[in-house]
């Protein structure tokens, strides 16, 4: 394997990890409330700015920052659910989209008003920026941290969903909401937990995103959020495993598209991602791991 290819592979895995972290939340939330949360990508911005604010104080150690970012993301997710999702339950599906779209507009423009649109420099500690050699290639330590922490969070999520009562309740709700309610599952609490976990992951992705790309502004969440949705669709919306798989496939494909084709095409990177979405929807609308959705009368 050539060094160049390995380098691109690691870049793709890094980007794919970030997409996967965001896509997991999309899928968990969709699986239960059958709703796309347009404000989900903006949690990336919330996470990135929370990190920046805490790091600027110079008092909080990085492990505590990571923990606080997860908490902030979870609380933001719960707030979004309270404001825009819970009151609309039972309304037509479109109402829910519009409500989350409105929340996204509030978060983005609120961010612009409070934080200004100026991009801010975002620095991880020195050690994260050092180069590490992997075989013939050399990557920044932060890339390995991104890949490693994503895998760790995925394993924890898997254990949670498979092994705990709340995780089982979530799966039951995704399978059949009415039957789950009849079995005595607290629907409100379970939905809240799904929002909390998914949003915490997205905020954590924001911390990593800022650390990797070095600059953040109030609109950074938009494009990654949309791309993570594409990842969800590739993997099959509603399936957590599908979200992770789709995230990695999309990250690898995007990096290979830029790295392997002549540079003339690299400007078309974002167009490529969304063209993929339309192609996937045309050829296999249920994604790789998704189940066909039944028509409910």
């Amino acid at each position: 394997m050539s060094a160049y290819f390995l380098q691109q592979l690691l870049n793709g895995l890094m980007l794919g990890s970030l997409y996967a972290l965001i896509a997991i939340g999309f899928s968990m939330i969709y699986g239960i409330v059958r709703l796309i949360n347009f404000a989900h990508g903006d949690l990336l911005m919330v996470g990135a700015f929370t990190t920046l604010g805490l790091a600027a104080t110079g008092l909080v150690p990085w492990w505590a920052i990571a923990f606080l970012v997860l908490i902030t993301g979870a609380l933001s997710g719960i707030a979004i659910e309270r404001v825009a999702i819970r009151p609309m339950r039972g309304a037509p599906q479109v109402t829910g989209f519009i409500a989350t779209l409105a929340v996204s507009v509030v978060i983005e423009n609120g961010g612009l008003i409070l934080l200004s649109g100026q991009p801010r420099t975002f620095l991880f500690p020195e050690i994260m920026r050092s180069r590490v050699t992997v075989g013939p290639a050399s990557v920044a330590a932060v890339d390995l941290v991104i890949i490693g922490s994503t895998l760790l969070l995925c394993v924890l999520l898997l254990l949670f969903v498979r092994g705990t009562r709340l995780g089982r309740a979530m799966r039951a709700l995704a399978d059949n909401l009415l039957a789950a309610r009849l079995m005595g599952i607290d629907v409100d609490r379970t939905i809240m937990a799904a929002f909390a976990i998914g949003s915490a992951f997205a905020a954590f992705a924001g911390l990593l995103w800022g650390g990797r790309f070095g600059q953040i502004d109030p609109l950074i969440g938009f494009a990654p959020g949309l791309k993570a949705f594409v990842a969800c669709v590739i993997g099959g919306v509603g399936s957590i495993g599908g979200a992770v798989l789709g995230g990695y496939l999309l990250g690898l494909a995007e990096v290979m598209f830029v790295g392997m084709l002549p540079p003339v095409y690299s400007g078309y990177r974002d167009a490529f991602v969304f063209a993929t979405l339309i192609l996937v929807l045309l050829l296999m609308p249920n994604g790789l791991l998704g189940r066909p959705e039944e028509d409910r009368a």
Binding site: L35, I36, F97, A223, L226, G267, R269, V273, F274, L277
Partner: peptide, 19 residues
């Protein structure tokens, strides 16, 4: 497909057209 795919595909279309 279900309605939400149209929402995201058209949002993606805005990006494609711009790019």
């Amino acid at each position: 497909l279900k309605g939400h795919y149209l929402a995201v595909a058209t949002l993606g279309l805005i990006v494609i057209v711009r790019v």
